[in-house]
Design a protein around this nucleic acid. Structure first.
Lengths: 145, 145
DNA sequence: GTCAATTATCTCGCTGAGCGAGATATTATC
DNA sequence: GATAATATCTCGCTCAGCGAGATAATTGAC
């Protein structure tokens, strides 16, 4: 019967570890931690079918517009991403991820994701549902909206 | 019945949101994201009764020794932390957190932690246990040791 | 006991990530 | 059609964090 606080600290530990794994992967590929986080955000947006503009990316990374331009420049230079003007609102720049970026993401985080999926499968459906609801609630608690 | 993958993505989302909140708090207090992460690590170590040396801090933050010296210098300058030579192994520098740092941490993350604790209390003991075990397993899956 | 090897931290010099301020281009408002 | 609001980019600058190497303390081998 673990205390509520120990569970909260575990949650933080997960965040710390995810950050460390991203940073290690970044260093191993000549990228910066922010670049990896950006790529993850862009892949997430792509999967969710969301726009993926420069502005949204910056907000999600906590960067201002200048910093955002810098990240996108680096990803473009590495060939993981390209810029496309949004035809409907030509102020916007849509950021399109290349297949190479998808492959990179899988190579980097596939094994970790696989281990977590395996872990989830050791729980009953009811338990999995509770875990999912808890994480949903945590995101809501952390996201001011 | 959410898919395993959607739960994994939620977990990543939690990590992203925690990072954002830390970065916002850092900016609001004239600190850098790394400084806040360092403070959290030091407070965690203190609570767990672990040593909290410069080297361990650097490893946990993914910094090399030069960068670690820099973080500690900044925290010392801000008065949140002080250096103390370990009497048993005088190569080591123990990093002692000030009460001000504890108060700062509570002010910054207390409300969020409170919301998550409240959230946990909406689950049955069995569900809470499953959540805790899942997070334990996730840390193990992410931490190469 | 002493000399080398190892460990923990720090210093120095440098690169570049990300900030603030402001420019530019596009769209919405009146 | 002028004005305001929005989205992104450019420029110049600061400082976080890296690599290389110095310093100091400890451990191990002989």
């Amino acid at each position: 019967m673990p205390s509520e606080m120990s569970t909260v600290h575990l949650l933080r530990e997960v965040a710390v570890q995810f950050g460390l794994r991203s940073a290690e992967f970044a260093a191993a590929n000549g990228m910066h931690p922010t670049d990896v986080r950006a790529l993850i955000c862009l892949l997430d947006a792509e999967r969710a079918g969301e726009p993926a503009t420069a502005g949204r990316l910056g907000a999600r990374l906590g960067l201002n517009s200048a910093g955002t331009t810098g990240v996108v420049d680096r990803l473009v230079r590495l060939g993981y991403v390209r810029r496309e003007r949004d035809p409907h609102d030509r102020r916007r720049v849509r950021i399109v991820v290349d297949e190479r970026a998808v492959a990179l993401g899988e190579a980097a985080f596939g094994p970790l994701i696989g281990r977590i999926v395996d872990l989830l499968r050791t729980f009953t459906p009811a338990e999995r549902d509770a875990i999912h609801r808890f994480l949903l609630g945590t995101v809501a608690a952390a996201d001011p909206d």
